[in-house]
Structures are given as C-alpha cells and as structure tokens.
C-alpha cells in the first residue's frame, strides 16, 4: 500500500533534552527516529507499534519506525516526527526566496515495507 499524508516535524521535550544529553545518545536517536501516526490511521493501515515504514517526499526518502500518537493529539491524515536528521532528509533545499525551506506541512507518501 501507499498513501499520501501531511508530515509535521516539530520539537518535543525528549528531543530537546536529547540535544543536551548528546546527539549520539540512544535517547535522542530513538526520539528522532520515531514517526507518530494517528491511532485511526494505524488501525486502518494495520500498522503495528514499532513497524518500519518508508516515507517519501518530493526530495528524499527515509525509513522509520511508527508509533501511535497519544489520544487525539494527531488527526487522521497527519503525521508527526521530532526534528532531526531524518525529518530534514525529507525537506527540500529551495526556500522560495525566504531563506526558510518548507519544514512543516510536507506532502509525503507512506508505504509499508515488506
């Protein structure tokens, strides 16, 4: 299967703490390598907690583990990931004359792997 979503990369407390703890620590790495999916989308797509998926944007592709977003934090159709190496790989280099690449609200295609 493959389906289009809108991806919101953003800050989290764990990601913020991880910057101080060190970017090569496990805590930081696991936080930025985790994709939040709304529980309804998890169920609909039969995604299991920790299952790896492929996300592809106009610019890049990553593989990442999924987790169900808490409660109603995420509406269906939206994905969330903590800022970091992986989220940046999906971001384009063009800033449309603003200096700021479009870093939130990215169109991505989600595919199950295997």
């Amino acid at each position: 299967m493959s389906e289009t979503f809108i991806l919101i990369p953003g800050r989290t407390s764990k990601q913020g703490c991880g910057i101080s703890e060190g970017k090569f620590t496990e805590g930081y790495q696991s936080e930025i390598n985790l994709l939040q999916v709304s529980p309804r989308d998890m169920q609909r797509l039969a995604l299991a907690e920790g299952e790896r998926v492929r996300l592809t944007s106009e610019t890049g592709a990553i593989e990442v583990a999924v987790t169900a977003a808490k409660g109603d934090e995420l509406p269906p159709g939206l994905l969330f990931i903590a800022y970091g190496d992986l989220s940046s790989r999906l971001m384009g280099g063009d800033t449309h004359g603003s200096g700021m690449p479009t870093s939130k609200g990215l169109d991505v295609v989600l595919e199950k792997i295997g």
């Binding site: 280099g93 063009d94 800033t95 449309h96 004359g97 200096g99 700021m100 690449p101």
Partner: peptide, 13 residues
C-alpha cells in the same frame, strides 16, 4: 537578501 544570502540557500545552491 533572504533567499540569496541565507545559509539554506548558499549551501543548497
């Protein structure tokens, strides 16, 4: 000039 002298641009280009 944002978009010209900003770092995301000077590097990506």
């Amino acid at each position: 000039n944002p978009g010209e002298y900003t770092t995301a641009d000077t590097l990506a280009r």
